[in-house]
């Protein structure tokens, strides 16, 4: 039987961590872009667009991420579309992230005082100008801590993609365990690596929250 050193295990896990990081970044950036589009639909003046975004968000927030992964992976296969695991994983995570970010950001836009809309309107600004110069700069300040906080959920969410066979950190953990028969060591290391990815983000979210609160002390 082959002996595995701790370094052998760690090295293989770290190699797989690259895919966790890539998938997290793709989900977050893609989800951010789609989320921004959802935000604009969600606060649009047209009711049909608002409803469309609302149903989208309710659908993705109201079903488990795992089901969304299964549907992206197996569901499309039923129509004869061959979906590789990485595509299904990326697609489902982008759409899932977008639903949450869109809703977080809507809350931030609505947190801006109504008087700001009225003042900018009475100065003659159109809707897009109000958004661009008055509302979004203020909403963004509020949005930073919850957005960074949610990125932690995205990283942990990538672990689910191991179930459809995408080899990221969790899947690599399973594979390495099957080869080494050392589940405690392997999953312990996996957990530590996740922690090393997530903890700095959680911490920075807390620091940002404190910082931005300080800036708001006079309001």
């Amino acid at each position: 039987m082959i002996e595995f050193t701790l370094w052998d295990i760690l090295r293989n896990l770290l190699l797989a961590t690259r895919w966790t990081v890539v998938l997290s970044l793709v989900s977050f950036l893609g989800g951010g872009i789609v989320g921004l589009a959802l935000l604009f639909l969600r606060i649009s003046k047209r009711k049909s667009l608002r409803s469309l975004a609302k149903y989208y968000i309710e659908l993705f927030q109201g079903t488990p991420l795992l089901m969304q992964l299964f549907i992206a992976f197996f569901g499309l296969g039923l129509f004869g579309i061959d979906v590789p695991a990485w595509l299904a994983a990326g697609l489902a995570l982008v759409l899932w992230t977008a639903a949450f970010l869109g809703e977080i950001w809507r809350g931030c836009v609505e947190a801006v005082a109504k008087g700001q809309w009225e003042a900018s309107a009475s100065l003659g600004m159109g809707w897009l100008q109000q958004m661009r110069y008055v509302i979004l700069p203020q909403a963004m300040k509020v949005a930073v801590p919850p957005t960074v906080g949610f990125s932690v959920q995205v990283i942990k969410g990538t672990a689910l993609t191991s179930i459809i066979g995408f080899v990221e950190l969790s899947k690599a953990g399973t594979v390495v365990t099957n080869a080494t028969f050392q589940p405690f060591t392997v999953y312990g290391l996996v957990a530590l690596i996740y922690f090393a990815l997530c903890w700095p983000l959680s911490k920075s979210s807390q620091i940002l929250e404190r910082k931005l609160n300080v800036a708001h002390r006079n309001h």
């Binding site: 005082a113 008087g115 700001q116 009225e118 003042a119 900018s120 009475s122 100065l123 008055v134 203020q138």
Partner: peptide, 10 residues
């Protein structure tokens, strides 16, 4: 122009 009770400065 309009001026408000709550100032509404940016």
């Amino acid at each position: 122009g309009m001026i408000f009770q709550q100032f509404n400065l940016f």
